Amino acid sequence: MSPGRIKAPDVSHKVILYIEALSVSFDGFKALNDLSLYINDGELRCLIGANGAGKTTLMDVITGKTRCDSGQVYFGQTVDLLKHDEAAIARLGIGRKFQKPTVFEALSVSENLELSLKTGKGVWFTLMAKLDSEQRDRIDAVLTTIGLSALRHKPAGVLSHGQKQWLEIGMLLVSDPRLMLIDEPVAGMTAQETEKTAELLTSLAGERTVVVVEHDMEFVRSIARTVTVLHQGSVLAEGTMDQVQNNPAVVEVYLGEES
């Protein structure tokens, strides 16, 4: 368990994230409208929906960035996320990766991972402090997982777009999250990078729960067992990719000719 982490969530009912009757309004616009969603422990879930469907707002509420008007959000059986701020939610074991990579380009790949270890110290202290054996092993394991071991001493700025995305996923992994929220991981990637990203995210599910927000339907098809379709702040449909693509309501409001 990483420093500062609180005990693991109670997933005795096999559900790690409970979202019930969640509503959020911005100047009269309902970004989330009585949304209910349940994510099972260890699953890889994909969220899809047109722009404005509520995907980002939902991630913001889960991570404490945005406060809701009404509803409930629980991490496991007992942890009410609405009572915690962003920092506390991260310590609980919920990590988020935004669409645009935010790596430290002047630092090496390995140093980026060092900074993400939960030391609670500043950048300079973190880089000057010696890692203990457990921390070194953790970084080595993450480098292997994200496929960047051979580039560990290279500046992050020389990485390709896809490699920067993998590094940022690695920066989440070193903090040992139980739930990972990943926003549009393959935007701008080559076909080969997209395929490797699918393999990476699929490999993470099981030990962790991975929720992916994505617009690339072929990518979603390649990784998802369950897809949740959001529309106007609510859940429109849920099921396998084939089920949602053949759902008349989904075809009408979102997938259109793509189905």
Rank of each mutant, 00 (worst) to 15 (best):
L115E: 09
R96W: 00
R96I: 02
E105L: 12
K130T: 14
W124K: 08
F104S: 10
I94Y: 02
E111Q: 12
H84E: 15
F125K: 13
F125N: 02
W124V: 14
G120W: 00
F125V: 09
G122T: 11
A129C: 04
A129F: 02
V123E: 09
D132E: 04
P101T: 04
S116F: 00
Q99W: 06
D85K: 04
A87M: 07
K121S: 14
L127V: 15
L115T: 13
P101R: 01
N112G: 06
H84R: 13
E111R: 01
L82Q: 15
L131G: 13
K118E: 07
G95A: 11
H84D: 14
A129T: 11
L131P: 01
V123D: 04
D132C: 08
L113H: 01
K100T: 15
L117Q: 02
V123W: 10
I94L: 13
G120T: 01
S108P: 08
L115A: 05
T126E: 07
T102Q: 07
R91F: 02
T119R: 07
D132T: 04
M128K: 12
K118T: 06
I89C: 06
L131N: 14
F104I: 10
G120P: 01
R96S: 08
L107E: 04
R91H: 10
K100F: 10
A87D: 14
